[in-house]
């Protein structure tokens, strides 16, 4: 028996697919936000192409905030988190697996949907290539960094809005580099530097955040 795969990963997947509405709602929200922009700023193809990458990224960040709380809220409230902390498995490994599972169920649908969004916003193929690379590298970063804030706010009643206020400023660098990469691609300039910086941020967050999340959860338990 592998405690991380059988005890944590399979459990989280089983719960996620029982609560399908919680999975579908953030993605529907994202789709609607993206659809609002052509209605709001006018459907001129040039305008849409210029604002497109930013719109997709902002919508992705906002929709990720909606589903983020799900990561630890239920486990904290029903006491499952206590039992996980009392298991012989190190907590940082458990949270790393939970964050990975959360990324799979909340962002893989976004990645699958991204070609459609690119068509909506009149992105060129070169821009879409850059966008998908920034999404693949950037969305795990959203999950890992976001989980730290979820760990800190999980003990509060109605921590939802506070979570957004804590996290949106933290995601600004990611937004800047991701949209700048797609802008460079639009001008047919190399965009590897921006990708490299996002990759570096991702590696740092993957290495450090499981420990920060575990610590935040312990503080919330106290």
């Amino acid at each position: 028996m592998s405690p991380l795969f059988d005890g944590v990963f399979k459990r989280d997947m089983a719960i996620a697919f029982r609560q399908k509405s919680e999975l579908v709602q953030p993605i529907m929200f994202l789709l609607m936000v993206v659809t609002l922009f052509p209605l709001g700023v006018g459907p001129s193809p040039d305008t849409l192409q210029r604002i497109g990458p930013g719109v997709i990224w902002i919508a992705a960040i906002l929709s990720s905030l909606m589903g983020m709380e799900r990561l630890f809220r239920d486990d904290f409230q029903d006491g499952s988190l206590e039992q996980v902390m009392l298991s012989p498995v190190p907590l940082w490994q458990v949270v790393a697996v939970k964050v990975l599972g959360h990324w799979l169920v909340s962002f893989i649908p976004l990645l699958l949907l991204s070609p459609l969004l690119a068509v909506f916003l009149n992105l060129t193929f070169g821009m879409y290539q850059a966008l998908i690379v920034t999404l693949i590298l950037g969305t795990p970063l959203l999950s890992f960094v976001g989980a730290i804030a979820v760990g800190l706010t999980v003990g509060l009643q109605r921590g939802g809005l506070l979570l957004a206020l804590l996290l949106i400023p933290v995601f600004i660098p990611l937004l800047i580099f991701a949209t700048s990469a797609v802008d460079s691609a639009a001008l047919q300039l190399p965009y590897q530097p921006q990708i490299a910086i996002i990759g570096a941020m991702l590696l740092l967050s993957v290495a450090a955040s499981p420990f920060a999340i575990a610590y935040a959860l312990r503080v919330s338990q106290n």
């Binding site: 405690p3 005890g7 944590v8 459990r11 089983a14 239920d74 039992q83 996980v84």
Partner: peptide, 17 residues
């Protein structure tokens, strides 16, 4: 977990242990 059955809850809990 309220969406899982008693049996599933026990199964995952045992795996974690």
């Amino acid at each position: 977990n309220s969406t899982l059955s008693a049996m599933e809850n026990l199964r995952f809990w045992l795996a974690q242990q």
